[in-house]
């Protein structure tokens, strides 16, 4: 892994996302125990692992929803949440953090759409308030996004009037409205009824084909096999195994990866 850093810049010189020795504890529970991860631009990385292995926490450190206790996270060569000066990391002001976050889209397991706003208002809220786009322009863009996720006729609906799959597709459109360079998905289909999983995965697959850089935490092994460039397997706060889908899913080296795959496949 570290060899990639020393080789001359052939393809993308700096990885899009770079985690080095990331550690995080909640109380006395150590959730992340030194995680290194590189995601190159345009690459889709799928993170697998048993529940409690730290996958979601890892994802949340990348847009600073979770502060790290040690190590560093950087996106596009810029530290997330901190400014480095010498050997110290200074926590950034909220405004700075928010500005950097607009470059990163996050899709939650439970959608977290704003229930009192219409679908269109959900999507335009961030472009208007965080990026100061004119409302009309933001609405125009939002309609295009709704069309892209197959919900062009739902702009005036409220989230509760939609199915889970439709809500998650709106949530994806909402994340895309900031035109982020990186998309993070935290178990995007885990809260959905089985028959609705497909429609959401289709949207994510389209985005992957379009060359968006993504990190997806999921339990959908089939999706990982089909879409991922890299599959990462986590267990007990560490990355245990990393490779192409064929390597990790079909010929896992590590005992724990094998044990996990035998349970979910």
């Amino acid at each position: 892994m570290s060899a990639a850093l020393t080789t001359p810049p052939a393809a993308p010189a700096v990885p899009k996302v770079e985690l080095r020795g990331v550690r995080k504890s909640f109380g006395s529970t150590e959730v992340l125990r030194g995680v290194d991860l590189d995601v190159a631009a345009g690459e889709v990385t799928v993170v697998l692992g048993p529940s409690g292995s730290g996958k979601s926490t890892l994802l949340r450190t990348i847009n600073h929803l979770e502060k790290v206790d040690g190590g560093s996270v950087s996106v596009d060569g810029t530290l997330v949440g901190y400014r480095r000066s010498g050997n110290k990391l200074y926590e950034l002001r909220e405004r700075e953090i928010l500005r950097r976050r607009t470059r990163i889209g996050f899709v939650f397991q439970n959608f977290h759409l704003f229930p009192h706003l219409t679908v269109l208002e959900n999507i335009t809220e961030a472009p208007v308030s965080a990026l100061r786009r004119p409302r009309r322009e933001a609405e125009e863009a939002a309609r295009k996004l709704l069309d892209r996720v197959g919900l062009a006729d739902k702009e005036t609906a409220y989230p509760k009037q939609l199915s889970g799959g439709q809500q998650q597709r709106v949530a994806i459109a909402r994340a895309l409205a900031l035109e982020p360079g990186l998309l993070l998905f935290d178990e995007p289909t885990s809260a959905l009824d089985p028959e609705l999983v497909g429609e959401v995965l289709d949207v994510i697959r389209d985005l992957a084909d379009g060359g968006t850089t993504m990190i997806v935490v999921t339990h959908e092994i089939g999706f990982a096999r089909e879409v991922a460039d890299t599959v990462v397997f986590m267990d007990e706060g560490r990355i245990v195994e990393r490779g192409t889908p064929a390597e990790v899913l079909d010929n896992p080296v590590h005992e724990r990866t094998r044990a996990f795959l035998s349970k979910v496949l």
Partner: peptide, 26 residues
Amino acid sequence: DGGQLEAAAALGIPRLRRLRRIVLPQ
């Protein structure tokens, strides 16, 4: 729901706007 604030923060919505537009109406 705490997820509402989290979602708003993840979208980069400024703090006061988050209160006025997302939290207080709910």
